[in-house]
């Protein structure tokens, strides 16, 4: 069975490489800064021993004061997994770096988050609505929709 790695264990390793990159870490997840998300993701993907070569899913959560984007990573090589989170406090124009360059599977999921939650992913090759149609007003999964 896939072993879920503890966020706090990985956090110390990442903190060494990218000082200030980790905001907080717990037994189940790792919260990183939005600005350092891309380099931390690249590090998680390429470092021997971690090798998170597979992106299981991306989701987004609306916590009113911030949006949280959750990346569920898996290493097929080592059969372990990790949950990485990042937050976005700008509600009017939330922006995060896109991870399509690292995991191609992020393409449609980032588009879905853009469509339903209104978070822009910088560097995405084709960021447009995917579930709803062009010209739809608003982002329905935001808590203040309706």
């Amino acid at each position: 069975m896939t072993v879920a790695l503890s966020g706090s264990e990985i956090a110390s390793q990442i903190e060494k490489q990218f000082p200030g990159g980790v905001v907080e870490s717990g037994a189940d997840s790792l919260l990183v800064k939005g600005e350092s998300l891309l380099e931390i993701a690249a590090y998680l993907k390429t470092t021997a021993g971690l090798d998170f070569d597979y992106l299981t899913a991306i989701t987004a959560v609306d916590y009113y004061d911030c949006f949280e984007v959750v990346y569920q990573l898996t290493s097929i090589k080592h059969n372990h997994s990790l949950v990485v989170k990042t937050r976005c406090y700008n509600r009017d124009n939330p922006t995060l770096p896109s991870v399509v360059g690292l995991w191609r599977g992020a393409d449609f999921q980032e588009r879905e988050i853009y469509d339903l939650m209104g978070i822009s992913f910088e560097g995405h090759p084709n960021l447009k609505r995917i579930v709803l149609w062009d010209g739809f007003q608003g982002h329905p999964l935001r808590k203040n929709f309706l």
């Binding site: 609505r129 149609w133 062009d134 010209g135």
Partner: peptide
């Protein structure tokens, strides 16, 4: 395809 999307969105609205 973006032009197609715009046309589709317009047609749906």
């Amino acid at each position: 395809s973006s032009e197609l999307d715009r046309k589709e969105g317009k047609a749906i609205n």
